[in-house]
Amino acid sequence: MTPEYLLGLALLVIGTIASAFPRDKDYLTRLINLEIPGFGLLLVMLSYDEALALFTFAGVSVITTFVFVRVMEKRGIP
């Protein structure tokens, strides 16, 4: 019963709900809320000692953010 594991699951649930049904339904809110389950998954991976996966996930999630920001900048915020 490690604290990392419980915290990670809690963040995963909070983030998923917040991102699936956000309060203001616009792109920016969803993009920022998407980072919460990311951190939750990071903690779950940490509690299972998967260091390499953790590393890669941290890098890839920021690249994902960049791709979304690029699309949003091209589209313009409605």
Binding site: L7, A10, L11, R23, D24, T29
Partner: peptide
């Protein structure tokens, strides 16, 4: 951590 997570979810 939890404070940060919850407030990130509820702020506008």
């Amino acid at each position: 951590t939890l404070l940060g997570g919850v407030t990130t979810a509820i702020y506008r």
